[in-house]
């Protein structure tokens, strides 16, 4: 897994590449906790290059989502493709997070 971090005026955009599984999820969570500690409250996660996600990956997303919400912020997602989308749907995550077609779309909605 690789995480590319881009600071936009309204949010931090993450591009997650590869696998978010039981092995890589702790690294993802640590990276996000550090960003949040540094003052990040709005996160847009671009998932177009995410090949795979399991429940361990979802747990990390949920932990980060709760942390951000407690600080008045949010994590939203963009570019969910077929199989990743299916995992979001089966878990009900598609309804607890906001999903966008693209990062640009997500940033525009942040107003």
């Amino acid at each position: 897994m690789e995480i590319q971090i881009t600071q936009e005026p309204k949010a931090v955009v993450l591009t997650i590449t590869g696998r978010l599984d039981a092995v890589t999820a702790p690294e993802f969570e640590t990276t996000l906790r550090n960003l949040i500690d540094q003052g990040t409250h709005q996160v847009v996660a671009d998932l177009h290059a995410l090949d795979y996600i399991s429940s361990a990956g979802l747990r990390a997303l949920l932990a980060v989502g709760k942390l951000l919400k407690a600080k008045g912020g949010e994590i939203c997602f963009a570019n969910l493709h077929g199989t990743v989308r299916e995992v979001f749907d089966i878990s009900g995550f598609g309804s607890i997070f906001t999903l966008h077609d693209s990062p640009a779309d997500a940033l525009a909605k942040l107003g």
Binding site: S55, L62, K66, I90, I96
Partner: peptide, 14 residues
């Protein structure tokens, strides 16, 4: 919802 969601239990669901 997000804040009520438990962290866990999804594995067997999958």
């Amino acid at each position: 919802g997000l804040m009520e969601r438990e962290i866990g239990g999804l594995g067997i669901h999958f």
